[in-house]
Design a protein around this nucleic acid. Sequence first.
DNA 1: TCGCAATTGATAATCATTATCAATTATGAA
DNA 2: TTCATAATTGATAATGATTATCAATTGCGA
Lengths: 147, 147
Amino acid sequence: MSRLAKERYAVMIEKLKRSGLKSTPQRLAIMRVLSENKEHPSVEAINKRLQKKFPGISQATVYRNIMLIKSLGEVLEIGFAGGGSRYDGRKPYSHPHVVCLECGKIIDPELASLRDMTREIAAGSGFEIKSFRLDFFGLCPACRNRK
Amino acid sequence: MSRLAKERYAVMIEKLKRSGLKSTPQRLAIMRVLSENKEHPSVEAINKRLQKKFPGISQATVYRNIMLIKSLGEVLEIGFAGGGSRYDGRKPYSHPHVVCLECGKIIDPELASLRDMTREIAAGSGFEIKSFRLDFFGLCPACRNRK
DNA sequence: TCGCAATTGATAATCATTATCAATTATGAA
DNA sequence: TTCATAATTGATAATGATTATCAATTGCGA
Ligand SMILES: [Mn+2]
Ligand SMILES: [Mn+2]
Ligand SMILES: [Zn+2]
Ligand SMILES: [Zn+2]
């Protein structure tokens, strides 16, 4: 468990306690996975990962706890229209993503030119901006070669 | 029907004929709505608009034809995870949107600082970028005042 | 005008997510 | 430590947007 993962996990635990909710083994395990997994896992992936330690853990429990952690503001949901959300528990705030159309891989890219975009939008539209979603879709290096 | 709408409609008709598909009244009407409606209408909104001219037009027909027009590359689908896509038949290519969290209004903002983002992402990630999705979420002027 | 593939309308199926509910469990008070 | 009880879990039903199915209808070329 990396330093960042430990920190993220600690913050989640902290918020959990502060809100008076229970620390069940399943819940803590889900938080741990979200804290350390860099691959923007799906509910299915998280469930699969937990089967080793919690044989028979319910899909519903994973959904429920992710929902809860999201309500605590500690995980970013990247939902897609076709169904199948992906989650980022390491950076629970708006940030850009690059998605591979072939294999579904998702990465967090650097993007310096993002700086003043929100400000520009707010000024131009009169909207009060709360969050954003920026996805780039394409083919990852591996899938490009495979063609 | 504005000049732009007429042009968009003409392009859709053109592609439809070139692909050997039939020009049914329902299909043409759906294309017309997509060409002229600036509000990023939903399937439900399109269906509602068409009830006047085609009482009893099937929801399935609207879905099917939007799917078809999308496959022709003539409408942009803005799908949301919670279900309920919105469509832009005036600008059928990747462009940013500003979405009101309160009333669902969607507008096409100006965004000069968008310029070299795709290039920067491609260079930094090694991905071959095909499209992007950029949404800003917030409160529109009307909904801000209403609070 | 005909013949038929394409299209429509009605409806069932799908699939991720959410709700329901009885059984289990974490937690704090006694 | 034992208890009381509200929270949580696991199993499963319900939901809602989308997609598939299929018989009846229709656009369009021969
Ligand atoms: Mn991320
Ligand atoms: Mn638009
Ligand atoms: Zn890939
Ligand atoms: Zn609004």
